[in-house]
Design a protein around this nucleic acid. Structure first.
Lengths: 109, 109
DNA sequence: GCAATACTTAGCACTATGACTAACCAACTT
DNA sequence: AAGTTGGTTAGTCATAGTGCTAAGTATTGC
């Protein structure tokens, strides 16, 4: 069961790939444009792009000999959703704890 | 430069480890409690816990022979922050695009 | 003190990841 | 048509990650 969250989190665990995402949120770019700012061999960089595509975070299309990449919002939102869920549970727990604390305070007065 | 984001995203890319986080947001638990619900060998499971600790997402303390784990909110918030940042840039871009679209519409009328 | 409990360490196997080079293909340019 | 550009494939290497078993340590309970 290889989840979308699995591959997305994995994709974002690499600084090169996060940099690509950071670039793509402000608009599409070609492979060479993206590659320019990274000091690694092109084939290596391409593998990073493939990881991003496999995760669904990035899509691309080839026109002539140029491949243009753009970001896909949905997977990012899925991650946000997961985090939001954790935060909610966490917050509820803190609430319970502080409620408990005031209870104790009241009873000891 | 091994970033906190690197290790946190990597930690969360594994379903076993995400399950641990999901469990810990609702309160601390011991190693065996956490292990119970996972069908893997204890040493293997312990390595997952170590990955979580190394990332800063989980802290633990040993009392007697029992180790109790709890979650740390800060790293989760750092991830949320990064995502939020991407979303903001992305949204701004969409705004610019739709503004451009209405400009064109106006000019062609 | 002996046994059970709760981890912990060490070591092995296998797969996956991230880097490289070399060579290749396909589409523009001149 | 020949060369340049933009991307791709294939193959190698080293390291890191995930699973296991077996054996060890340190508390706790009887």
């Amino acid at each position: 069961m290889t989840n979308q969250l699995d591959t997305c989190f994995a994709a974002l665990s690499d600084p090169t790939r996060r940099a690509v995402v950071e670039r793509l949120v402000s608009g599409p770019a070609t492979v060479s444009e993206l590659h320019q700012t990274h000091d690694i061999a092109l084939p290596t960089f391409l593998r990073h792009l493939k990881v991003l595509e496999a995760s669904g975070l990035v899509r691309s299309a080839k026109k002539g000999r140029v491949r243009t990449c753009h970001i896909e919002a949905a997977p990012l939102m899925e991650i946000q959703g997961w985090l939001e869920w954790q935060r909610r549970v966490w917050d509820r727990r803190l609430d319970r704890l502080s409620a408990l604390a005031s209870d104790i305070e009241r009873n000891t007065q």
